[in-house]
């Protein structure tokens, strides 16, 4: 189809605009992460796109190595929050995916679970604060405050609806005949699930898990309320990166932001080949 050239120009301009709006702040963050203090602070008057004197000082700083440019000394380094984020987001994802997949399969195949889908979506209808304050009180009674397990557990619960809904859609789309075939060919129900359903669902599991992981990874509110010091996650720690003398430590925040972007990107690349392929490609005759 041949379109008018002015229309094409307009179309690409719009696309370019959207891409710029999405990417420029990210590029700015990456650039800032490699700038010395003079280039990112308010004191350094002229801001440039490209660092004039690229440095790893910001990274050294958040990992506690002395930095000549920065006068402040950090009370805590970024190592522990990175560990906390990795651990809680991973375990939270495991909990949500295990429970969500099991619930979705039961509901999709056997109609069991009654109002579970609605009950789960209701969790998301409340303002998060209305839910989180009672949770905070419960968690403190249970001794789960500032505890990696307590945070993982609430991550699992909060992202369970997403895991459930995503997996239910995938299970609903999977043709029954493939499971029927396995059943007829000698599998028990459990063997069908392990040998056929789960392997076939690998792309679905991977993409749902990535989505849930990113939700957990980017949480700020829950971690802020449920951790104090030992298990503060990256976003909570990032908020604390300021000093009374220089104000917000933008360079350090940017460096931490760059680090925080790495795990989801690695996961995304790892499962990319699953995402582009259909679930049951080749299983059925067209």
């Amino acid at each position: 189809m041949q379109r008018a050239i002015p229309f094409e120009i307009f179309r690409y301009a719009v696309i370019l605009g959207i891409v710029a709006i999405s990417l420029v702040p990210t590029l700015w963050m990456v650039s800032m992460a490699f700038k010395p203090i003079a280039e990112w602070s308010a004191a350094g008057a002229d801001l440039t796109w490209w660092p004039r004197n690229p440095t790893l000082d910001n990274f050294r700083f958040i990992f506690g190595q002395s930095s000549t440019d920065l006068i402040v000394a950090l009370e805590r380094t970024a190592g522990r929050p990175i560990l906390a984020s990795l651990l809680t987001a991973t375990f939270g994802t495991l909990i949500a995916m295990t429970a969500g997949t099991a619930a979705a399969y039961g509901l999709s195949r056997f109609g069991q679970g009654g109002n579970l889908p609605l009950a789960l979506i209701q969790l998301r209808l409340f303002p998060p604060m209305a839910v989180m304050i009672p949770v905070m009180i419960m968690w403190s009674f249970l001794g789960l405050i500032d505890n990696w397990f307590g945070l993982s557990l609430i991550y699992g619960i909060v992202t369970l609806p997403f895991a459930f809904w995503l997996m239910k859609t995938f299970f609903d789309d999977m043709p029954r005949e493939i499971e029927d075939a396995a059943l007829v060919e000698g599998c028990t129900r459990w063997r069908v699930f392990v040998r056929v359903t789960l392997p076939m669902m690998r792309p679905a599991l991977a993409s749902s898990a990535l989505f849930v992981f990113i939700l957990n990874w980017s949480d700020y509110l829950i971690a802020l309320l449920l951790t104090t010091r030992d298990w503060a996650t990256i976003p909570v720690y990032m908020a604390s990166l300021s000093s009374s003398m220089t104000g917000q430590l933008y360079g350090a925040k940017a460096a931490l932001g760059v680090i925080a972007a790495v795990p989801p990107i690695i996961m995304g690349i790892a499962i990319q080949k699953h995402l582009v392929r259909g679930l049951t490609f080749g299983a059925l005759k067209e």
Partner: peptide
């Protein structure tokens, strides 16, 4: 008698091969 114990073999209309 459960499906595996009936010992009947089947070719499904849409074939239902295991894609993985």
């Amino acid at each position: 008698v459960s499906p595996p114990d009936r010992n009947v073999a089947m070719v499904f209309q849409n074939l239902a091969l295991f894609p993985h």
